[in-house]
């Protein structure tokens, strides 16, 4: 079995070497297609993660003036509950918040004073009622304007729009680039089949089975696709690493969350190999049968 695999693989590698520039073009086009796909998939996953972080409810987090006791907090919560559209009000103690930060960033926060205010998390029934609730809370005497109100609703709205874009425009772009890469691999294998008509005829004469002739072509497509995928994976890794540094430096909208790393490289390599083998399979099916 291994002996057979080695034979077929050696034939495929030899074919790639002989195909030279066509193989090079196919690998690069596949890399571009998979980079576009990988980039969009990465953005999509990032947006979904951020949406998950933001939760599914419309919420406001309102800061309470420093030094207000539990009675004041309770009174402010009752005030919020009476506002139209408010579904639920939860007290977020500043000590709890600080405890989480200490656990997450022990090096940074060790020895520092708790900078967080007491907060109220207010869940609102619909997006249309958010502004009215926000204005009412800003008018409350215990509201702390310096610490403000965290309103993630607009960000979520924006992210949802972005998801829609990634879904529709991205799908079109991915389809187009995949078709281009697939067509190029298809043509590369087609040219290889045509250039080797005489050889294929001879192979048939010496008793090479259909599979023995077909598999090197399929592997040729698969290897070209895989190499394209690996290139795309490393390019995506580099680009996302650069973007992450940019996000960290300028505190931009965080929808990335790190780099896809080796998982991204192997995933794109596998996808590229599948795309390459599919395109090569279609080409071989159409042209190899014609050679007797």
């Amino acid at each position: 079995m291994l002996d057979r695999l080695e034979f077929v693989l050696a034939e495929a590698l030899e074919a790639i070497r002989r195909n030279g520039w066509m193989a090079f073009a196919a690998i690069n086009t596949t890399a571009i297609a998979l980079l576009v796909f990988g980039g969009l998939a990465y953005a999509y996953v990032g947006i979904q993660n951020r949406l998950a972080e933001l939760g599914t409810q419309f919420t406001l987090i309102v800061s309470i003036k420093d030094g207000v006791g539990m009675d004041g907090i309770h009174e402010m919560a009752q005030y919020a509950r009476k506002l139209p559209g408010v579904k639920r009000v939860v007290h977020l103690p500043k000590e709890e918040h600080w405890k989480k930060v200490l656990q997450k960033y022990p090096d940074i926060s060790r020895g520092a004073k708790n900078p967080f205010p007491e907060q109220l998390l207010i869940e609102i029934a619909s997006m249309e009622q958010v502004d009215a609730v926000r204005a009412a809370m800003e008018r409350h005497p215990l509201y702390w304007p310096e610490k403000g109100i965290q309103d993630a609703n607009r960000e979520r709205f924006l992210l949802r729009k972005l998801t829609d874009f990634v879904h529709f425009a991205g799908a079109l772009l991915v389809l187009f680039t995949f078709l281009t890469a697939g067509t190029l691999i298809y043509n590369t294998v087609h040219l290889a089949v045509m250039a080797r008509r005489q050889e294929i005829h001879t192979m048939r004469l010496v008793g090479a089975s259909h599979a023995t002739i077909r598999w090197p072509f399929l592997l040729e497509g698969g290897i070209e696709g895989m190499l394209g995928g690996i290139l795309a994976g490393f390019a995506l890794w580099g680009i996302t690493a650069w973007l992450s540094r940019l996000v960290a430096t300028y505190s931009l909208l965080q929808i990335g969350g790190g780099t896809p790393g080796w998982t991204g490289v192997w995933s794109l390599a596998a996808l590229g190999a599948a795309l390459g083998m599919l395109a090569a399979g279609l080409s071989v099916r159409k042209y190899l049968g014609a050679i007797r």
């Binding site: 030899e14 050889e199 001879t202 004469l205 010496v206 090479a208 089975s209």
Partner: peptide, 30 residues
């Protein structure tokens, strides 16, 4: 066909393979 040896009119050697590779291919294909 593996039981029949055939020498075609155009000889039909694989041009990108060396002499021993041409023979080896026929064996490997079989």
């Amino acid at each position: 066909r593996r039981k029949i040896g055939f020498v075609p009119q155009d000889i039909g050697l694989l041009p990108n393979k060396k002499v021993w590779e041409n023979l080896a291919y026929a064996m490997r294909a079989a």
